[in-house]
């Protein structure tokens, strides 16, 4: 059962993982339980809420509330600028590549796939300085590589099947 907890973000697991594992151990395995944990993992990735503060009762409730609110993950100005630079740069390069390929062979499947995947691929690359920065360099490269190549192959398949469709 612990494998499903690995679907949650690492920070989330560090904060709530052992509590959830204790709760899960007391439940009878069922489809409803797996579906609930899967939905929770998707939510934790899409809407990170955890606060990396240690359990404490020092200070009053107002101070604890302020500390919790201040602990929401944020990115520095430099990280945001680097992310924006990757987004704009990668978008521009991939768009130019797509236009170049289109000039060589108008409306080819490859040039259209490159153009369609330019923005999502650039968006993926922009995450290297923000949300993906928590990953180890090797893992980050794998995620970026698989993400962008997968995106391109998906677009290629879509454009190809659209082109042969009657």
């Amino acid at each position: 059962m612990s494998w499903i907890l690995r679907l949650y973000p690492r920070d989330w697991r560090q904060r709530y993982g052992h509590e959830v594992a204790t709760l899960v151990a007391a439940e009878r395995p069922s489809f409803r339980l797996y579906a609930d944990l899967l939905a929770g993992a998707i939510d934790a990735r899409l809407n990170p809420q955890w606060t990396p503060i240690q359990p404490t009762m020092e200070g009053d409730d107002t101070m604890n509330a302020i500390r919790s609110l201040c602990a929401v993950p944020e990115f520095s100005k430099a990280e945001q600028l680097r992310s924006a630079a990757w987004m704009i740069g990668a978008s521009a390069i991939l768009t130019l590549l797509g236009v170049g390929l289109d000039a060589l062979e108008s409306q080819s499947v490859i040039s259209r796939a490159v153009l369609y995947s330019a923005f999502p691929a650039a968006l993926t690359f922009s995450l290297r300085n923000t949300y993906l920065s928590v990953l180890e360099p090797a893992k980050r490269r794998i995620v970026l590589g698989v993400g962008t190549i997968g995106m391109f192959l998906f677009m290629l398949a879509v454009v190809y099947f659209a082109s042969i469709a009657p």
Binding site: Q49, T51, A65
Partner: peptide, 29 residues
């Protein structure tokens, strides 16, 4: 509520300062 739902709600309440964790008792907080 399932554990995923419970802790999805707990994380939201905690991040907004509506609840606060106390010192853990063994593996339970």
């Amino acid at each position: 509520p399932g554990p995923g739902t419970l802790y999805g709600a707990i994380s939201r309440l905690e991040s907004r300062g509506l609840i606060v964790p106390l010192a853990s008792e063994e593996r339970r907080v």
